[in-house]
Design a protein around this nucleic acid. Sequence first.
DNA 1: CAACCCATGTAAACAGTTACATGATTTA
DNA 2: TAAATCATGTAACTGTTTACATGGGTTG
Lengths: 220, 220
Amino acid sequence: MRSRTEVLETAVLGLLHESPMHGYELRKRLNLVLGSFRALSYGSLYPCLRALVAQGWIEGTDTGDGPAVSTKRARIVYELTTEGKEHLGALLATSGPAAWEDEQFDVRFAFFGQTDAETRLRILEGRRSRLTERLESVRQSVARTRERMDEYTLELQRHGLDLVEREVRWLDELIDNERGVRRATPGDGRPAATGTTDASDVRQDPPALDAGRTTQKERG
Amino acid sequence: MRSRTEVLETAVLGLLHESPMHGYELRKRLNLVLGSFRALSYGSLYPCLRALVAQGWIEGTDTGDGPAVSTKRARIVYELTTEGKEHLGALLATSGPAAWEDEQFDVRFAFFGQTDAETRLRILEGRRSRLTERLESVRQSVARTRERMDEYTLELQRHGLDLVEREVRWLDELIDNERGVRRATPGDGRPAATGTTDASDVRQDPPALDAGRTTQKERG
DNA sequence: CAACCCATGTAAACAGTTACATGATTTA
DNA sequence: TAAATCATGTAACTGTTTACATGGGTTG
């Protein structure tokens, strides 16, 4: 499908799978999952919801239609249909290159709780190699044009590389974590359980996440 | 003006001010300055160039028109007009809130070499407070919804916060640097000169950039 | 001599925001 | 009771990519 639209669709379906919601609430939750910090506009969200209804993946029930009239204003609460759950499952089971590109990776990661361990690992590794690839190409291009480059432009490049390098290290820890849990090797210096491991809805092997927490002692 | 277009315009004018170029070359250089790693498409660049010509800010000379016929294929080399230089100067002298938002900050920073010290500092400080503001709002929203949140979604949030925190520290060093050079206080533990301080075209006090380099010893 | 990079451009499709329109509910 | 927030939606506009079209120059 159109990869851009697919991101929004996946995000909406994934959130609705966690719990039914109406559009307004969905919008607030969406930005936490969409990568960017900016909220999606209603002009994008509502048409998307209509399209998903048309596809038969979600179903909206208007509060106010029913016999039990609540005190709140009528809202349309959306929930996944059976086909919608199947479709979401199929979306989250894919692990092609698109899954680890910039646009999709964040959504896919956000719903790793609903993704099987094998797919998770493949996506994390794909993302990692994608980033190291990018790192290499940027380093080369910087090396080629260092002479001609402005001091500040250079600093911007360095900072960009720093961020990507940091992301690679983050992925390394996540990958270690996933592999560690899969092999279930206790006493390797990386103990599994730390946080609240809520296993509801997880298809396979939910590893405890603690990546990147060790190096950052003082924050805020 | 339309802030989105303004970013591209600024980038093109800024690059052309450094040296005249034809479209194809411009495109390759553009991604180094536009923040994202992805290259801009020709479908965006060429219409933009035409618009800038129409505005009278740049001028294109076709290689092949002239008497000296080179062996290479005819290309259109663009350069700034006098009005273009003035316009660029005006653009780079602004320091309103737009300058430190996500869309514009990277371009503005890339051309700090053509920006006066006062404006540089104001933009860096504006960016910093913008980011800490965002940090606070994300932290609060995470705190509010931590219970309902999926393990992986939470990890994504933590990682996002990490990146922003890192960016704030980067800005801190840059701001220190700018202020240090302005006050010209030697012996404060932050020596000025390290790299190749090329002072060409810099309007005021070009500080040597060394931010973030101290903490990262091992890289690659 | 084929494949690939250089170089310029256009038209259509697409994704997304902004601004508008509407009205109910809650809070200061 | 005014202002803010909740809640849903549409139309127009903006910016961007994709695909197409064209052709010169270089390299294996």
